Simulated scan of single mutants.
Amino acid sequence: MQEKNISEKDLNNLIPIIITTDKGKEEVYSVIIYTNNSQPLKDKGIIVQSESKNFVTALIKKEDIIILNKINSIKYIKFPKMDTIGVPKQEFQKDE
């Protein structure tokens, strides 16, 4: 079963994304929030990147954790997993 509540410890296992805002540089974390209503997130200042019927993708700061844990419309929160793609080594032949 997925957890709705997340902690700062959960974020410590993720690589932060650095964004620049009018407040300067900030560390944020990419999350997937399962909800049918994104408006409470937006009302609380959560950066919603994309919306679907059952979930949103968002960028959150560590201090947003307290806010997210209080929003009743959130079913659960997941962290995206990134696959690395190997780039094949290309060999070039010099034309003579």
Score class of each variant (00 low, 15 high):
residue 19 I to S: 00
residue 64 D to Y: 10
residue 50 S to N: 13
residue 52 S to A: 15
residue 20 T to P: 00
residue 43 D to W: 00
residue 37 N to G: 04
residue 81 K to L: 15
residue 25 K to A: 06
residue 18 I to V: 14
residue 34 Y to W: 15
residue 18 I to L: 08
residue 93 Q to V: 14
residue 27 E to I: 04
residue 88 P to E: 11
residue 42 K to E: 15
residue 86 G to R: 09
residue 24 G to I: 07
residue 52 S to P: 01
residue 96 E to W: 03
residue 80 P to G: 10
residue 38 S to A: 15
residue 17 I to Y: 00
residue 24 G to N: 03
residue 75 K to R: 13
residue 17 I to F: 01
residue 44 K to M: 14
residue 55 F to W: 09
residue 87 V to N: 06
residue 73 S to Y: 03
residue 57 T to Q: 07
residue 91 E to Y: 12
residue 29 Y to A: 02
residue 25 K to L: 08
residue 94 K to F: 10
residue 44 K to T: 10
residue 85 I to D: 00
residue 23 K to T: 03
residue 36 N to F: 11
residue 4 K to L: 04
residue 29 Y to F: 15
residue 92 F to G: 03
residue 13 N to C: 08
residue 38 S to I: 08
residue 66 I to A: 10
residue 96 E to T: 08
residue 80 P to C: 13
residue 42 K to Q: 14
residue 42 K to R: 14
residue 32 I to N: 05
residue 10 D to F: 02
residue 62 K to P: 09
residue 46 I to Q: 01
residue 5 N to K: 11
residue 8 E to I: 14
residue 29 Y to C: 05
residue 76 Y to L: 04
residue 26 E to P: 12
residue 53 K to F: 13
residue 71 I to C: 10
residue 58 A to L: 05
residue 14 L to T: 04
residue 57 T to D: 04
residue 9 K to E: 13
residue 10 D to G: 08
residue 79 F to W: 13
residue 53 K to I: 15
residue 20 T to D: 03
residue 16 P to L: 06
residue 26 E to N: 05
residue 61 K to T: 08
residue 9 K to D: 09
residue 10 D to R: 07
residue 18 I to M: 07
residue 46 I to A: 05
residue 6 I to Q: 00
residue 7 S to C: 05
residue 12 N to E: 15
residue 64 D to V: 12
residue 64 D to W: 06
residue 14 L to V: 09
residue 87 V to S: 05
residue 48 V to C: 10
residue 73 S to P: 04
residue 88 P to R: 13
residue 32 I to D: 01
residue 76 Y to Q: 02
residue 94 K to L: 14
residue 64 D to N: 15
residue 67 I to T: 15
residue 87 V to P: 00
residue 18 I to Y: 02
residue 75 K to A: 10
residue 49 Q to F: 10
residue 69 N to A: 12
residue 6 I to R: 00
residue 27 E to G: 00
residue 68 L to I: 12
residue 62 K to D: 02
residue 1 M to N: 01
residue 85 I to Q: 08
residue 37 N to A: 13
residue 16 P to R: 06
residue 12 N to F: 06
residue 92 F to Q: 09
residue 14 L to G: 02
residue 24 G to Q: 01
residue 94 K to D: 07
residue 69 N to K: 08
residue 91 E to H: 07
residue 26 E to M: 11
residue 93 Q to T: 12
residue 13 N to Y: 12
residue 70 K to D: 09
residue 37 N to F: 11
residue 94 K to T: 09
residue 64 D to H: 15
residue 20 T to Y: 04
residue 1 M to F: 02
residue 60 I to Y: 01
residue 21 T to K: 02
residue 55 F to A: 05
residue 48 V to T: 07
residue 21 T to C: 01
residue 32 I to S: 03
residue 41 L to C: 11
residue 78 K to Y: 03
residue 85 I to C: 02
residue 5 N to I: 08
residue 96 E to P: 07
residue 95 D to G: 08
residue 5 N to A: 11
residue 65 I to C: 10
residue 13 N to I: 04
residue 31 V to T: 11
residue 75 K to S: 15
residue 58 A to G: 04
residue 63 E to T: 15
residue 58 A to W: 01
residue 64 D to I: 12
residue 44 K to W: 04
residue 95 D to M: 07
residue 3 E to G: 04
residue 34 Y to S: 14
